[in-house]
Write a protein that binds this DNA or RNA. Structure first.
Lengths: 275, 275
DNA sequence: TAGTGGTCTAGACCACTCC
DNA sequence: GAGTGGTCTAGACCACTAA
């Protein structure tokens, strides 16, 4: 299934009954998996990590759709030739990564991120008062063009790549407060420039293009609004704004969206929880 | 030990051999622990959660000092009357919460957060270029006074409470870029106003006052510098700055520090990773 | 009642660290 | 070689859900 051409996953400890000798031989510590696809040295991963990768691949390939139920732990264990406990460890890890949802008595499901509570996973602006107003959006423009230098840089694109750009104005509790410039690779989102865009773009990415946003890196700065930006946000030029430079990554950690947001923060703040 | 006057923890499933009948009876789902001390309804927690709480209490009471080694899994299991696997699940959870560090072949240790890599756990400003310059600090003033309204609000203090205030100027890569106003309850940090303050305050809190910072909530805004602030940061008044309003919580989720930072972000950004 | 995930246990082998 | 955490297995009982 992986790491080895054999049908079953190779164990890393435990009394597995396979007759195959140690082949590569080595086991390996635990946490030092690295990732990023290099790992030419030993390339060993614990069994549950291999199960994790196997299931992650199926999620990335949309074998299971969002909201759909997965086979039970026992069925997956039998299919992959590992114990139920090992499958559980992989499923728990995928749940911790917000890719699965497990419900006692019902089953394990592919996470849906268009729920009301999930809107706020990647939207960290909150009204100062503590109200829970969900953001509303108005699309100003959507165009297709050749990628700029910045866009190629953020999205790891080649020179000739084309992108789709979208400008949106978002409001919270009825007040315009965010101006967003969104860029996605045209190749990954064919036809998106002609679609009606929902408020939560990431659910559209998942349902129409099979792209799941798993993570985002945001870089925040305080800036001063330019004339055009200020006009769109209906404030005076020179007002300070919070600039959020976000690159969103899919399940395979490829950058698939660049979003530059300008936020008015007089009655709104960006919430960050450090652990 | 907890939940029950008996010596051993009560199980929630499994074939434990205790003769005591179900007493309270009910089991309970799992995740709905809530916390915050209310939970008068059933108050049930899984065994591993009880072990977690027991060990957390010992950490909060400084039974084990930072850097110190804990008893082995087997010893803890024997002491608490549970299986090694249950202890492991609790230890793994504490490790996930950054309170413990586990090293294969060596043991389990209380996390030390004055290491070089740990400085950045609560310090999210990074040079744009990607350099890893650690911040340096210069204390401008330190005073004791009665708590202001804002301070009482942030730190959940009573009217008569006294606080210690500290103003610091921090620089990154040699450039002054952060002006910090720090407030702590005087009662929790006796004598701190007369101490030399290290660059990493939180290690001082742990080593001298037995207070471990487990979490922090930050609220970010874009603001304009006032004259005094701009002078201290050596820029012109009116320059935009990133305001970080942080409340730090200890192991028992009590607010123990309020920190208001003003950051220049022309060559520095605030890094936020969303998962 | 059957099937699912949630918890708990017991015991095995492995890799790492230190003596 | 002894002791530690890391991984894997097998099997038990529990709580929850739905038919």
């Amino acid at each position: 299934m992986l790491e080895q051409p054999w049908d079953a996953l190779i164990p890393a400890g435990g009394q597995r009954r396979s007759e195959m000798d140690r082949s590569g031989g080595q086991g390996a510590g635990g946490q030092g998996n690295g990732g990023h696809g290099t790992g030419s040295a030993v390339g060993f991963r614990p069994l549950y990590r291999q199960v994790y990768d196997t299931l992650l691949r199926r999620l990335a390939d949309a074998v299971w759709q969002p909201g759909q139920i997965l086979p039970s732990e026992g069925q997956l264990a039998a299919e992959l030739g590992v114990s139920q406990g090992t499958v559980r460890k992989a499923l728990d890890a995928l749940t911790a990564d917000s890719l699965l949802v497990r419900r006692q008595g019902r089953g394990t499901f592919v996470a849906e991120h268009d729920d009301k509570q999930s809107v706020f996973r990647f939207f960290k602006l909150r009204p100062d008062g503590g109200g829970t107003g969900a953001p509303l959006s108005r699309v100003l423009a959507i165009t297709e063009a050749a990628a700029s230098v910045d866009e190629r840089d953020r999205l790891a694109l080649v020179r000739a790549a084309r992108v789709v750009r979208c400008e949106r104005l978002r409001s919270l509790d009825g007040r315009a407060c965010v101006l967003e410039a969104i860029t996605v690779p045209a190749a990954l989102f064919p036809g998106i420039h002609a679609m009606p865009l929902p408020n939560t773009l990431y659910s559209l990415y998942a349902s129409r293009f099979g792209i799941t946003i798993a993570m985002a890196n945001e870089r925040l700065k305080a800036v001063v609004l330019q004339a055009r930006e200020a006009a769109l946000l209906e404030v005076a030029p020179g007002v300070p704004a919070l600039e959020i430079d976000r690159v969103a990554l899919d399940l395979e950690e490829r950058p698939v969206e660049w979003r530059l947001s300008l936020c008015l923060t007089d009655s709104v703040h960006y919430l960050s929880v450090l652990r």
